[in-house]
């Protein structure tokens, strides 16, 4: 009898699985009408989020962010550049988002994913426009040398809400950034002072250019939440499966004081009414608080 039961269970399970694959939209709508999602989350809840700092020893600052299974690793390398004439006492931040072929079955080597440059651009726009970093802090010698921060974000596992995870990892990497102590040598080049190396002994005697400026002050931290609009439902923090079935995505980016930094709805079937937009912003506010707590825990240790 037990055997029959288990085989029935199995066939029922297989039927559900087949239904999910054949009629994904109906499968999801049945869940939505119960205010529940296939992974057991209520509609407005984001997945579990983890942030880890300082994993990449070859970079000056790094962080790993995980939202559900979506995983991002961000690393910042600091290099020296000659600032442009227009802004002689400002540094620069270059953001690049990569989707290597390991992250998703749809990305093949040699053919970069379509989303990658879009996310790259949006990230660099937000980082430069939301006043998070004062580029003047990146100045070393006015008009002569300034920091160029190369921020590289790699998607290790793509399971929806890529932009949110990428922004979170970028912010965390900036909070982890340790700017190397440098000095100006005789040739007018900037060199690092890392204790213990004999060849730097002559330089060490000279004054370091940036003794105090080891950390960036993050004035304003952006947090983002992506939602799916589908009929009357709003689903926060979608998985890759949900994104592939329902195509209207809304991304809200808020700063520390809940001001909207960016609002992005890139087309899609559903039209967003003002009430839907309001509830998206509400959800983003709630999510911002959660993320602030997660990052706050990181800053303590």
């Amino acid at each position: 009898m037990a055997l029959v039961d288990s085989s029935q269970d199995l066939s029922a399970e297989m039927e559900v699985d087949a239904f999910r694959r054949l009629f994904p939209l109906r499968f999801f709508e049945r869940h939505l009408s119960e205010s529940l999602r296939p992974d057991g989350r209520p509609l407005g809840k984001a997945r579990d989020t983890i942030v880890n700092l300082g994993l990449v020893s070859s970079a000056d600052g790094s962080a790993l962010a995980k939202i559900g299974s979506t995983t991002m690793i961000a690393a910042i390398r600091m290099e020296v550049m000659t600032p442009s004439l227009d802004s002689p006492d400002e540094g620069c931040i270059a953001v690049e988002f990569h989707m290597p072929p390991i992250c998703s079955p749809t990305v093949r080597p040699g053919r970069p994913a379509d989303e990658a440059p879009v996310i790259s651009k949006r990230l660099s726009d937000i980082i430069s426009s939301c006043d998070m970093i004062d580029l003047k802090e990146l100045c070393l010698v006015s008009g002569k040398a300034a920091w160029m921060g190369y921020l590289d974000i790699y998607c290790l596992d793509a399971d929806g809400a890529l932009f949110d995870a990428a922004l979170l990892s970028a912010v965390a990497a900036f909070s982890n950034l340790q700017i190397p102590v440098v000095a100006l040598n005789d040739n007018g080049r900037i060199v690092a002072i890392n204790g213990g190396q004999e060849e730097n002994a002559s330089i060490r005697e000279k004054e370091a250019v940036n003794k105090e400026k080891r950390k960036l002050t993050l004035k304003n931290i952006p947090f983002s939440l992506t939602c799916i609009l589908h009929k009357k439902y709003i689903l926060a923090d979608p998985t890759a499966e949900e994104e592939s079935i329902m195509d209207t995505l809304v991304t809200v980016v808020l700063d520390s004081s809940d001001q909207i930094v960016s609002f992005n709805k890139s087309g899609g079937n559903a039209l967003a009414g003002s009430s839907a937009i309001k509830s998206c912003v509400e959800l983003a506010k709630k999510r911002g608080k959660e993320l602030k707590e997660i990052l706050g825990e990181m800053d303590i240790d």
């Binding site: 390398r77 290099e79 270059a94 651009k121 190397p180 440098v182 060199v191």
Partner: peptide, 19 residues
């Protein structure tokens, strides 16, 4: 991004490589 490419050639790492 254009700004980045222009700048990429002129930046250098301050770390000295022991070779």
């Amino acid at each position: 991004m254009a700004a980045k490419q222009g700048a990429a050639a002129t930046t250098y790492s301050p770390k000295i490589m022991a070779r």
